[in-house]
Amino acid sequence: MTLRGTSDPMGTPSSAPLFVQRSGTGPSVVLVHGGLPPNITWSSQQELETRWTLIVPSRRGYPPSPPASLQDFLADADDLVELIAQEPGGVHLVGFSYGGLGACIAAERMPERVRSLTLIEVPLWVAAEDDEVVMELAGLADRFAASADDAQAESEFFALAGVDRDMLAGEDDGVRHAMGLWRELRSPREAQPRFEVITEAGTPTLVFSGDHNPALERLCDALAARLDAQRACLPGAGHAVQHAPGFNAMLETFLTTAERSRGEARSD
């Protein structure tokens, strides 16, 4: 299933236009995908378009957006800032996995334009840099990215991400292309968002996890604490929490409450 709707190019300060898919009606929600293409990442969110305007960029390097030599959360943040600036009234920002790194940085760059922030198992290692269990997981991600010859790291990383090589063998060229970018990326260890800017702005924030890995649970707990965020744990879909039963209902409740709070703030 793919997101229906019109598409439009969105210019960025640094290079060619980014491809953005739009559908639905209502307040704007930007959905930022992780390592897999957006049509796979957000396939379960199609139903939200009856009440929300879904804005789904293809991150740089993911067709039909311009090519890139690596995944780069700083480039993602630049693209998202440009996109958010063009949306009247701002947006709700939802980031999954690696895509959440750029989303978090964009939120702290433009807190006045972000109505709410939702982060789904985002590898913001800095939030728990003193936790040995979390740092072991960060080390696994580093080993996977460093070498395609480390079979053990690949096996453990794919298990963490819920990836089955046999399953992916039959997927389309978009998935195979995406897999080629999994080892070409700016390390999440370099991500240093200013959490205090988001909290001081009073941005409603929600952190999701999937209850499939203890280290990720600890990371998400730490991230929620740093952001003074609501915390949700939804098992059933592993790392791809957005496909878990009940995700859309929980997200909509959060978004609706954030919308109501924004309206009350304007009336004060």
Rank of each mutant, 00 (worst) to 15 (best):
S15K: 01
R260G: 00
G174P: 04
T50I: 10
A258I: 06
A240G: 04
G170R: 07
M110R: 12
P37S: 12
F195M: 10
A85H: 15
E252D: 13
S116W: 02
L119D: 06
E47M: 08
A232P: 00
A151T: 11
V81I: 09
A258K: 00
N248T: 08
A138G: 06
M10K: 07
E190A: 10
G263S: 14
D166K: 08
C104A: 15
L185R: 13
V133P: 00
H239I: 03
E184V: 01
A159F: 00
E136R: 13
S7A: 15
A237I: 13
S116D: 11
N213E: 14
E132V: 12
A225P: 05
G5S: 05
F254E: 05
E264S: 11
H33P: 05
T2V: 15
P57D: 12
L160R: 05
G139I: 06
L18T: 09
R165Y: 06
L137Q: 12
D149K: 13
T50W: 15
I55L: 14
A128Y: 01
V126E: 13
A106I: 03
P111H: 08
A249V: 10
A201F: 01
S69T: 09
S28V: 08
E132K: 09
N248I: 03
V94D: 04
L160G: 06
V133I: 11
A103G: 07
A107K: 07
M250H: 14
V241T: 10
M179Y: 00
F247P: 00
D131S: 12
L216E: 12
A127G: 09
G170D: 10
T6W: 13
S14I: 04
P235V: 11
V32H: 06
T2L: 14
T257R: 06
E190G: 05
S14M: 02
L140S: 04
D8F: 14
G174W: 10
A148P: 13
G5Q: 02
L80F: 02
E129T: 12
N39K: 04
E49D: 15
T41L: 03
